[in-house]
């Protein structure tokens, strides 16, 4: 049994945080149970049986999950100019299939898949050079696949994620790999901003740190970009981090296409982020816009790999702390 470590918090927010922690601990337990159930299913049914089961589950999910269904249909309208119950069903099914495949990736069952690699050499060269880098990912396709593909398995990758997610990812990797996973998770603790110093330390030690380029973290810096013909807000934190740490950025995408194909792409995004003092905000907006264009291109190529099931274009408040 593993219980979430309590996190020390300032006294002023102690009671709210205690509740949060209790919730996180329950969530952790819940996710451990869920992960074990998933493992049992894959062991008994295999990948094929698991996929058949997902079809039934995701059919009911599509029927009853109104808000995600609406978001999926709106996205399909935007990309394809049409949408239906079935475009949403297929969209959710792809998400579930990718989630299922993660189990096999972490277990190292790569023989089940066909991988194509583009640009994986960039990361191996980068690591060999002894300099660290930032990997820019998104809620799109499969990041796991990237590491699972045999020759990338040795890359020193750290994943930066929010509390609840971080615990879930760490629990998943630990549970599924039987404690052999080499990936480390850096937890974003909203009460304590010093997790960033862990990022600094890992990059300076020549490791790779994966961050998400498509969603804002808590109080994250951001910029408004043009994405699929409408304004959307993307984080600028990754670019500031790269500028301060003087490290390059690579984009990583793992495009899934049924039934067993993963197209892994890694591209250099920027060797050195330059933020001139006077035009800093404009420069940051420029980097975010460039990423938005990369993301749009892959999302148009494989729309069912887009895993943001909410209104991506809604504008949160401008308040930044």
């Amino acid at each position: 049994m593993v219980v979430a470590e309590p996190v020390s918090t300032p006294a002023t927010t102690a009671s709210a945080s205690a509740e949060d922690e209790a919730w996180l601990a329950r969530e952790e337990q819940g996710s451990r149970t869920g992960i074990r159930a998933l493992l049992l299913v894959t062991r008994v049914l295999g990948r094929r049986g698991g996929r058949a089961l997902l079809r039934i589950i995701m059919f009911y999910f599509t029927l009853f999950a109104r808000a995600p269904r609406r978001a999926s249909r709106a996205f399909s309208e935007r990309v394809r100019g049409r949408s239906s119950f079935w475009t949403a069903y297929r969209h959710f099914l792809r998400f579930a299939e990718v989630a299922l495949d993660r189990v096999f990736f972490v277990q190292g069952r790569t023989e089940l898949f066909e991988f194509t690699h583009t640009g994986g050499q960039h990361l191996r060269d980068q690591v060999a050079s002894g300099r660290g880098a930032i990997l820019l990912g998104a809620h799109f396709g499969s990041f796991e696949a990237m590491r699972a593909a045999s020759q990338d398995a040795e890359l020193p990758i750290n994943i930066l994620a929010h509390n609840a997610n971080a615990k879930m990812i760490a629990a998943f990797l630990d549970e599924v790999s039987g404690g052999r996973s080499k990936v480390r998770v850096i937890e974003i603790d909203p009460e304590d901003r010093t997790y960033i110093l862990t990022v600094k330390e890992r990059v300076e030690a020549g490791e790779l740190v994966a961050v998400l380029g498509d969603r804002l973290g808590l109080n994250d810096r951001s910029a408004v970009v043009e994405f699929m013909g409408a304004p959307a807000r993307l984080p600028t934190g990754p670019y500031i981090m790269a500028a301060v740490l003087r490290c390059p950025i690579y984009t990583v995408f793992g495009l899934y296409s049924p039934k067993r194909r993963y197209d892994l792409r890694c591209e250099p995004f920027c060797e050195q982020v330059v933020l001139p003092r006077k035009t800093r905000e404009a420069a940051l907006q420029g980097y975010a816009q460039r990423y938005a264009e990369r993301l749009e291109a892959v999302a148009r190529e494989a729309p069912d790999n887009w895993f943001n099931f909410y209104d991506f274009w809604s504008m949160p408040d401008d308040g930044q702390a």
Binding site: S8, R193, T194, I196, K200, I240, V244
Partner: peptide, 29 residues
């Protein structure tokens, strides 16, 4: 201060005093 501020501050401290931050998370906190 947000996390980016903390990062910039850590870099400035390193440049000015030659002091690196610890690798221990709870110590950094």
């Amino acid at each position: 201060l947000d996390s980016i501020d903390i990062l910039e501050l850590a870099m400035a401290i390193h440049r000015r005093y030659g002091v690196k931050t610890g690798s221990d998370d709870s110590q950094n906190r």
